[in-house]
Structure formats: structure tokens, C-alpha cells
């Protein structure tokens, strides 16, 4: 019956498919156009950057990788890149580790003070991080951490959202497995490492992406805390290039820098795409 039904609907079917794909392509074009422009501009000569919409009139002749050379030559871009890589990756490793540990504890153990703690955490979740900004700045000053990587990494290793996400995910770990492992004499830490974590791997992937993304693109807090140009991260460095007078800004170079800054997260998303979506599916339907 479904075969005849679909046979009857074939022309309408094709029309609908066409409409859907057209709409999606239009939306995708809008979404991707800025990237396309950025990639083109990164390879255009200064006079061509605004001369043409995407590609210059003679692409083979006019496209040049010179912007990238200038980027590394005239700005501390390599240093910024290194700083961003170090700060973001360290922060991510720490926050995923701490959140999965803590989430496991919250999900699978009973202990005193659990309810008040959860309540407190929930309260701070709705708090924007900015309410902390002045107080956190003074704390960094007291520790002597102003203008240090620690000022970004250490506060960045705590995430209430991460704790909740992992708690949600860890709830799905079957208690029987844990019980069996304990009977075998496994230590708790090994249970976490060898049993719980593999089960929640999608969430680990999803949260890794989320936290790396947040750390990589973070602008406000590093801007406040870092003062040496040698310690700047990519967002601060590139945004700072905008503050130079107009005739000094090399737009092609700026786009080359932006392109390079966006590539790592793109790569990470590409790798973690599946985990991200399935991790979200488990965590978001709450």
C-alpha cells in the first residue's frame, strides 16, 4: 500500500524535495557566505580585498599567500596562537576531568550536603559570570596572578554547567556494573576511569567541544587580566588590530589571521560532530 501511495505522490514528492533543498541551500549560503568571503580575502592583495565581492578578476594571477607571511612577520600572531592553544587545551583537559569526576560523585553517591550543594550550584548557574568580574579581578590581584596564564586557566577549570551535564549523563550508568566492579575489588577511581567514562563518552566529546570552544573564543576575561602583548590570546590580538588607524589596518592580513583562528575549532567540531549531537540529545532533553 505504501508503494502505490508513494508512486502516486512521485511528482509532488520531487517538488517538495526540491523546495526543501532550495530553502536549505539558501540558508546555508547565508550561513557560509561570510566564511567564503573570509577565505577569499585572506588570499587577496590589499587593493583587491574590497575591490571584488569574492574572487578577484584574475584569480590565478591575483591570489597570493603573502598575507600569511605578513601575518607572522609583522604581528606576534605565532605567539598569540601558541598562547591560545596552551590556555584553551589546558583549561579543557582540566575542566572535563574535574566535571566528570564531580558529576560522577553527584550522580552515583549519597553523601551529606548533597542537596544544599546542588541547590547552591543551581543558583550560580543562572548568575552571569559578569557579576563575578570585579570580585574575581581583585582576587587575581591578591594572588599576584594578574597577567599570568594561571589567572585564565584556574578559574576556567570550574564549570557548574559541566557538573550538571556530567551528572545527567552519569545517571545513565547502570548501577549493577558498579556493584559488580566493587565486588571484584575495584577502587572507586578505577571504576570512574574504566567503567563510567567509556559509557558517557558521547558527553565527554560534547563537553570537550563546548569547553574548548568557550575557552578559545573567550575575550572579556583575558582582556581584563592579561597585560603583556606577549601573553595575549588570539581574540584579543586580532580585535586589537582593529584599533589601529584605518589606513594602517591590513585587511587581508586580518582575515588571514581570523581564518587561522577559526580553523582549529572547525577541525575539532568536524571530529567531534557525532559525539556532540548525541551528547546533546542525552543532556538537553531534561
Amino acid at each position: 500500500m505504501s508503494a502505490t501511495r508513494s508512486a502516486l505522490k512521485r511528482p509532488a514528492f520531487a517538488l517538495r524535495a526540491l523546495a526543501v533543498h532550495a530553502a536549505l541551500l539558501a540558508a546555508a549560503a547565508v550561513g557560509l557566505a561570510p566564511f567564503l568571503w573570509m577565505c577569499c580575502a585572506a588570499f587577496k592583495r590589499p587593493e583587491d580585498v574590497f575591490g571584488s565581492a569574492f574572487l578577484p578578476p584574475h584569480p590565478l594571477h591575483d591570489l597570493t599567500p603573502g598575507n600569511f607571511a605578513m601575518l607572522f612577520h609583522s604581528t606576534p600572531f605565532a605567539r598569540w596562537l601558541l598562547n591560545s592553544l596552551f590556555v584553551s587545551s589546558t583549561q579543557t583537559v582540566l575542566v572535563v576531568t574535574f566535571s566528570s569526576l564531580g558529576g560522577f560523585a553527584l550522580a552515583k553517591y549519597r553523601f551529606r550536603g548533597k542537596k544544599p550543594l546542588l541547590g547552591l550550584m543551581l543558583l550560580t548557574l543562572v548568575l552571569p559570570a559578569l557579576a563575578l568580574l570585579p570580585g574575581a579581578y581583585l582576587l587575581m590581584y591578591d594572588f599576584g596572578w594578574i597577567n599570568s596564564y594561571a589567572a585564565i586557566i584556574v578559574p576556567g577549570s570550574v564549570s557548574v554547567l559541566g557538573m550538571f551535564l556530567f551528572r545527567q549523563a552519569m545517571l545513565s550508568v547502570p548501577d549493577d556494573l558498579l556493584h559488580a566492579a566493587r565486588v571484584d575489588g575495584c577502587s572507586e577511581i578505577r571504576i570512574w576511569w574504566e567503567i563510567a567514562l567509556p559509557i558517557v563518552r558521547p558527553m565527554v566529546g560534547a563537553y570537550t567541544l563546548l569547553s574548548f570552544l568557550g575557552a578559545w573564543n573567550s575575550y572579556l576575561w583575558p582582556q581584563v587580566v592579561l597585560q603583556d602583548q606577549a601573553k595575549f590570546t588570539l581574540p584579543i590580538g586580532l580585535a586589537g588590530m582593529l584599533s589601529l588607524p584605518e589606513y594602517q589596518t591590513q585587511y587581508g592580513v586580518l582575515m588571514a589571521g581570523t581564518l587561522l583562528s577559526v580553523l582549529p575549532v572547525m577541525l575539532l567540531f568536524f571530529v567531534l560532530q557525532k559525539d556532540f549531537v548525541s551528547g546533546l540529545a542525552s543532556g538537553a532533553i531534561k
Binding site: 574535574f98 569526576l101 564531580g102 560523585a105 553527584l106 548568575l127 563575578l132 570580585g135 577502587s187 577511581i189
Partner: peptide, 28 residues
């Protein structure tokens, strides 16, 4: 270690939470 586990697991988070979330909050 079975009894201490939850507290130990939560320790990094708690230290950071109290130090870098609650204390600055109070400070603010």
C-alpha cells in the same frame, strides 16, 4: 577509599567553586 571517594572526587570542583565562584561573588 570507598567512603572517601565522593568527597575526593568533588574536591577539585569544590575548591575551585568556593575559591573562584563563591568568594568573588561575596567580594562583588
Amino acid at each position: 577509599q570507598r567512603r572517601a571517594a565522593p568527597y575526593l572526587f568533588l574536591l577539585p570542583f569544590l575548591i575551585l567553586f568556593f575559591g573562584f565562584v563563591l568568594y568573588p561573588l561575596a567580594n562583588s
